[in-house]
Design a protein around this nucleic acid. Structure first.
Length: 422
RNA sequence: GGAGAGAUGGCAGAGUGGUUGAUUGCAGCGGUCUUGAAAACCGCCUUGGGUAACACCAACGGGGGUUCGAAUCCCUCUCUCUCCGCCA
């Protein structure tokens, strides 16, 4: 959620920047300014009405004490009328506040000035790419390899739940566990505090990170208790800081968490969702940082580089994209996507998304810190996948297949307990 | 799931209808004293709206109600604790 003060001060800037995200903000900004104006007028009227009632009440108190009952009765009548007026004002006020809030929530985050304009994924800026791609010669796609080596049983997953809920088996299951441990160990070594959050969250948490309102279609919902299954650990982990006031030297806060993630992905089909390419349930290790506004972009680079480091250790060919305005998420100010190359499918698969949300989430979360002058200031929030497992597994399988089996990168050996899937 | 108790400022803890936005203690901040520190003493110390700044308004878990007036009374929801039941 953008800050109201920001909109008041420079509505033109908001409209201009949101155009980069292909969002037409004109109307919304105008109604926000109108509602804000009305809200303040009503607030003043209501305040002075209440002030008058307070005065009268105090007078009645004094009169009662002095035993002047008749006069007190007179004052009471006055207050009855005022009370009706202020009831009406209150109604108008809360109505206006709601309208204002509803409009405010519609506006996506402003893109950072470095974010390129663009309509779709085709316009993303490639900031890094490996020079040589592995050949597809004689390579089998990962779903065939999964079957061949008995790593994943998609059919039984369908029986148990439905499409997109794979059953990992044997070395396949062990590889999952190995990757999770590897990623968590790396994050911990780099100063992230490991946490294990709930994977069901309430509505307030969904609002805090920007999934709600409007994007409930993406999440599984447990109606009985009004809980949402998390689409990413970002939701519970960032919401740890909802309604929190930090001290300046509490910054940065660095957290990491492994969680399963659940996404409905309504409407997906075809080869995009074949095998591990897109699932309804998958595993991911996430890193989250709460940062001082002055440092957040430095930190974004740092986080991106950290994830690149993981991919290097896994010896996967990868590239880094800076997303264009049209491809960025609602809440993000700048996002890097990291993609690994999947040699049999001959396509890039997104395995991480690293974003700076600036104050967009913290404004919703009321996540602030007291700065050096003792003033309260919204913190910046950032997060990134480090990493999402399924497509990493897909790329590992496809790129490392040999006649003898699938050779795993060395960093994983101590986690898997085997070097080769055969 | 059943019965009972509770929810107040960073924490602890008063307050049961009328200058209580809230006694007090601790913590924190500033000062006096001191070579420095401690102790002692003095002062400051909730948040949001609003204002150029004041004024003013709101908030004692959330929502609603009674009343001229509610932290204080009533209803309701949520959460916490104790006991019972069930259980990985």
């Amino acid at each position: 959620m953008l800050e109201l003060s920001q909109i008041r001060e420079n509505p033109e800037k908001i409209i201009k920047y949101l155009a980069i995200k292909n969002f037409k903000a004109q109307e919304t900004v105008e109604s926000i300014l109108q509602y804000d104006e009305r809200r303040r007028t009503l607030q003043k009227e209501s305040d002075s009405c209440l002030a008058e009632q307070n005065n009268i009440a105090a007078r009645i108190g004094a009169l009662m004490k002095a035993g002047k009952k008749a006069e007190a009765e007179q004052e009471k009548e006055k207050n009855a009328a005022l009370k009706e007026t202020s009831r009406q004002l209150q109604n108008l006020l809360s109505e206006t506040e709601k309208l204002l809030h509803d409009e405010l929530v519609k506006l996506p985050n402003l893109p950072h000035e470095k974010v390129p304009a663009g309509k779709s994924a085709a316009d993303n800026e490639i900031v890094f790419s490996v020079k040589e791609l592995p050949s597809a010669e004689g390579k089998k796609p990962h779903w065939e390899l999964c079957e061949k080596y008995g790593l994943i049983d998609f059919e039984t997953g369908v029986k148990l739940t439905g499409a997109g809920f794979p059953l990992y088996k044997g070395k396949g299951a062990r590889l999952q566990r190995a990757l999770i441990n590897f990623f968590l160990d790396k994050a911990t070594e780099n100063g992230f505090l490991e946490v294990q959050p709930p994977i069901l969250v309430n509505e307030d948490s969904g609002f805090g990170t920007g999934q709600l309102p409007d994007k409930e279609g993406q999440m599984y919902f447990v109606g009985e208790d009004k809980f949402y299954l998390i689409p990413t650990a970002e939701v519970p982990v960032t919401n740890i800081y909802r309604d929190v006031m930090l001290k300046e030297n509490d910054l940065p806060q660095k957290l990491t968490a492994y969680t399963p993630c659940f996404r409905r992905e309504a409407g997906s089909y075809g080869k995009d969702v074949r095998g591990l390419n897109r699932l309804h349930q998958f595993d991911k290790v996430e890193i989250v940082r709460i940062e001082h506004p002055e440092r957040s972009y430095e930190v974004l680079e740092e986080m991106k580089d950290y994830v690149c480091g993981l991919l290097q250790q896994l010896q996967l060919p990868y590239r880094v994209l800076r997303l264009c305005g049209g491809d960025m998420s609602f809440a993000s100010a700048m996002t890097y996507d990291l993609e690994v190359y999947s040699s049999a499918q001959q396509r890039w698969l997104e395995v991480s998304s690293v974003s700076n949300f600036e104050t967009f989430q913290s404004n919703r979360l009321k996540l602030r810190f007291k700065n050096a002058e003792g003033k309260k200031q919204l913190a910046h929030t950032l997060n990134g996948s480090a990493l999402a497992l399924p497509r990493i597994v897909a790329a590992l399988l496809e790129n490392n297949q040999t006649a003898e089996g699938i050779a795993l990168p060395e960093v994983l050996h101590r986690y898997t307990g085997f070097k080769m899937i055969d």
